[in-house]
Design a binder for these strands. Structure first.
Lengths: 131, 131
DNA sequence: TTGACATGTTCTATATAAAGAACTACACTT
DNA sequence: AAGTGTAGTTCTTTATATAGAACATGTCAA
C-alpha cells in the first residue's frame, strides 16, 4: 500500500513526519493519515510533492496497485537522482558533467560489465583538474 | 497537459464525455472540468478509473508532469536527464559520479555563481585518469 | 525531578474536489 | 418550426481532502 512505501522511504532518508511535511508543503497531520492509510486517496499534487522530496516518483509510490510502469525513471535508480540533484545544487553544469562522462566512456568504463541496478564504488583517480 | 491526453484518448475510443463518465463512475461535469484543465488536481482514485476505461495507465495520463509543480524536471532540466541516462547506459556507476562530483565541489565550482536554469559549457581540463 | 524539545497522533475547521442538477447549442426528425 | 435526442458546459450543492490546531508520549539535559 502507498502508506507503507512513503513511510519506508521517509525513514530511510531519516526524515520525521514533520520534516517531510514541511519540505513537501503538506500538513503533518495529513501525511500521518496517508502513511497509515487512514486517507488513501491523495491528489496528484500532494503525491507529487511527497515523491519529489523522497527522491522517488509517483509510479514507485503507487506500486503495482494502479500503474503498470515502464518509464525512464526505472532506469535511473533513486541514488542517481539524489546524487544528481546534489550536484546541480552545488553548481555543476551539464557541460561539466558531459565532459566528465565522455572522459569516463573513453576510458572504457563499460568493460567491467556493470549490470543495471548493481552498484560499485569508484575507481577513479584524478591527478589534476584545472579550470 | 493531462486534460488534453484524456480528451484525445476518449475521442479516439469514440466515447462522449457522458459515456466515459458513466463507465468510470465519475460525474460528467467533473470530467469536463478535467479535460479543460479547469480543475487539474484529481485524486488518484478518479484518475485510475479514467485511465482504466481508456485502456491506459496513470503514467501516460500524467506524461511529463509526473510530478506537477515541484518536479524533478524543474530542477534537473531535460539535458541533465538525457546525459545521465547515457552515462548509466555506458556503465558509469553512482560511485564514480559521486567521486567526480565531490571533486568538482572541492574545486569551488560554485564560485562562478551558477543560477538555476542557466547553462554553461564545461571548463574542465583533465590531465589524466587512471583506474 | 523539571522542563524544553522532539516525536506522532487525534481533534475540528476550512478549502476544494466531485456530484447532480439545470442549461445551452447543435443536429435530425416529422 | 416544433419537438426529440445528444453533445458539452456552467450552475449550485455536498462530500471529503487537507490544514491547523491541541494533544499525548518519549527523550534528554540541567
Amino acid at each position: 500500500m502507498i502508506g507503507e512505501r512513503i513511510k519506508s522511504l521517509r525513514e530511510k532518508k531519516g526524515y520525521s513526519i514533520t520534516k517531510l511535511a514541511d519540505l513537501a508543503g503538506v500538513s503533518k497531520s495529513y501525511l500521518s493519515y496517508i502513511e497509515r492509510n487512514v486517507q488513501n486517496n491523495p491528489s496528484l499534487q500532494v503525491l507529487a510533492k511527497i515523491a519529489y522530496h523522497l527522491d522517488t516518483n509517483m509510479e514507485y509510490l503507487l506500486g503495482e496497485e494502479l500503474a503498470p510502469k515502464v518509464s525512464v525513471e526505472d532506469v535511473l535508480d533513486e541514488e542517481w537522482h539524489s546524487i544528481l540533484r546534489d550536484a546541480v545544487d552545488e553548481g555543476m553544469s551539464s557541460g561539466d558533467f558531459r565532459a566528465l562522462k565522455d572522459l569516463v566512456r573513453s576510458h572504457k568504463w563499460k568493460d567491467e560489465g556493470l549490470v543495471p541496478g548493481k552498484k560499485k564504488t569508484s575507481n577513479i583517480i584524478i591527478l589534476h583538474i584545472d579550470h
